[in-house]
Computed example of a mutant assay.
Amino acid sequence: MSNAAAESSAPFSDGPVKNPTDGPIHEWFSLSYHNYLVLHRTLMQSMPTDWQLRLRACLEELEVAFAHLEHPEAFLVEAATEHEVRDLTNAQQFLLGITQDWFRGETPPEDLTGEDLHTWEAEHEDPDGPVYHRDGNELRASDRVLVPTLDSIPHYQRGRTYIPPRLPVAMSS
């Protein structure tokens, strides 16, 4: 949930909507560029039954409304942390297939070693820093990438995992 939505109990704007995509869902996503909403099954199954019934009804309504569209068979979802390319460790760069080019596409001659190699590198090193590449595409140092990590929310274990929600008093009754 967006921070603004979490911190505010005020309703979404109820004025006229100029574009049908500019409604409460657009506002909930805020200024993010996220294209999907991923929810932990463990957390949803841990919510009160009346909440689960409301969510289920909304999801079923969404499914019926767009049944006429072709949908992907599955999605690949994994927990991750977000980093700027410039802040990645060498191990993270390797994991993501990101390479650094400090020499503007040039490669030192194979016969250079020791001091001669260091001299060549100093003469050819890009003063603006490295250029990063991934899958044949150039990345800016400020580009943000996802590094896979462990998920801190436990697996639902066929419905056996329960995490007590901390609900405001009005929601828990």
Rank of each mutant, 00 (worst) to 15 (best):
F66K: 13
F66S: 11
E110T: 04
Y132D: 00
G23D: 12
W102H: 14
S142P: 01
R144G: 02
P108G: 03
Y33M: 14
G136S: 06
F94S: 14
L37P: 02
H133T: 09
L112M: 10
I153K: 02
T89M: 03
H133P: 00
P130V: 06
F29Q: 05
R144M: 07
D116K: 14
H40K: 04
M44A: 05
E115M: 10
S32N: 12
P24G: 06
L139A: 06
R140Q: 15
L146D: 06
R104A: 12
R54Y: 09
H40Q: 00
P72I: 03
E27T: 15
E70K: 07
F29T: 10
D116C: 15
R86F: 02
E63V: 09
R56T: 13
P24F: 08
L146Y: 05
E123G: 07
E63L: 13
N90P: 04
L59Q: 06
H26W: 02
W51L: 03
A67Q: 12
S32A: 11
D111S: 08
T113V: 15
T113A: 15
V131G: 03
L39E: 06
W28V: 13
L146W: 01
A74M: 13
T107C: 10
T42P: 11
F103W: 12
A91Y: 01
Q100G: 00
L31F: 11
Q52E: 11
G23I: 09
